[in-house]
Design a protein around this nucleic acid. Structure first.
Lengths: 183, 183
DNA sequence: ACCGGCATGTAACGGGTTACATGATTTT
DNA sequence: AAAATCATGTAACCCGTTACATGCCGGT
């Protein structure tokens, strides 16, 4: 499953431009479990349009660049449903931050600390964001997924706050590996 | 940051063959936040070896295919540390399952149910796995990351069990989109 | 007899990221 | 005056996945 399907999904929520799709992926309820950049969204929309899975009409705006607003077609719905009916791939996660935590003994304390606090703050932000979305969004599907997100990032934030000492508590020399020292 | 760095990281924990590295990525404490297949591990090891970041010696085993056991060199440590000292990329997550939950109203009930239960079971498994690793593993870094994993997947399992009804509870027609019906 | 686990590797393909190109407008 | 937001798009590159190739051993 690729970005095309993701775009179709977003478009089932209402028409949008490529730029707006990206925003929804960053700020909307999907933010925490799927990511895509312009470099993949625009080509995906192009392909979907050529395949008549989405319609397009251009909108000129005053004091704004014109945008292309896309909306999903019947054919688009069909292929979206069909994609969702297949066995989903296992989650692909790649967290460099967690990798850094896991190998924290190799990392400069100050650097680690900065990354840690930023990550913690990010978790809080996601929780708040999802909480604010709860007000406006109402489908049970979305509610479920939002709640799950809050549960996950709430747990992360909570755990990180309660267990700082495991990474920072006791002074620890950078043991476990040879430092590059030529004495 | 790519699979090469990941391999270096695993090799800081002790020498291993490509096959064993993959196993550690699947069964070890990194399992839940990083993934890599043979197709990326073997080429990575090859490149690292050519670059003298890892050493290699071949081991013939009785009643087993021979294996190539790799160990990290001083140069390898250097590049690993250097990789960890850079600003980590933001997490890249791609969960088709959560996407399916989010768009559950487009999914066949039975299919959804199967995916749901399997995912829930998977979360439980990860928690158990991480709990079993706690006995043998002791570095604070690892303890922290393990704990975080337990917190995350514990929260997922708990939430899913408590909120099934949001996805399945009330009978819901597949609303919100035109079904492909030509009557 | 067959499947699963152990063990390594390559080649092609697909797809996403990064960087580049462009440009107006609003906010700081 | 600079930076951020809005807005679209392309091309090259990197890299990871998938599929294929090979083979032995142990258990059912």
């Amino acid at each position: 499953m690729d970005v095309k399907i993701l775009c179709l999904g977003v478009l089932t929520l209402g028409e949008a431009s490529g730029y707006e799709i990206k925003k929804q992926l960053e700020e909307g309820p999907l933010a925490y479990f799927y990511h895509a950049g312009f470099g993949s969204i625009y080509p995906a929309l192009k392909a979907l349009y050529h395949d008549k899975q989405i319609d397009c009409f251009e909108v000129s705006q005053e004091s704004r660049p014109g945008k292309k607003v896309y909306s999903i077609t019947a054919k688009g719905y069909e292929s979206f449903r069909s994609a969702l009916s297949r066995k989903p791939a296992i989650d692909k996660i790649r967290s460099e931050v967690l990798l850094m935590f896991f190998f924290a003994r190799f990392v400069d304390r100050e650097h680690l600390h900065g990354v840690f606090e930023k990550y913690l703050e990010g978790a809080h932000k996601i929780v708040k964001q999802l909480e604010s979305l709860d007000m406006v969004d109402t489908t049970p599907d979305c509610e479920f997924t939002n709640g799950l997100g809050r549960a996950i990032f709430g747990a992360i934030a909570c755990y990180m706050e309660d267990n700082r000492q495991l990474l920072f508590g006791l002074e620890r020399s950078n043991s476990g590996c040879p430092t590059t020292s030529k004495t």
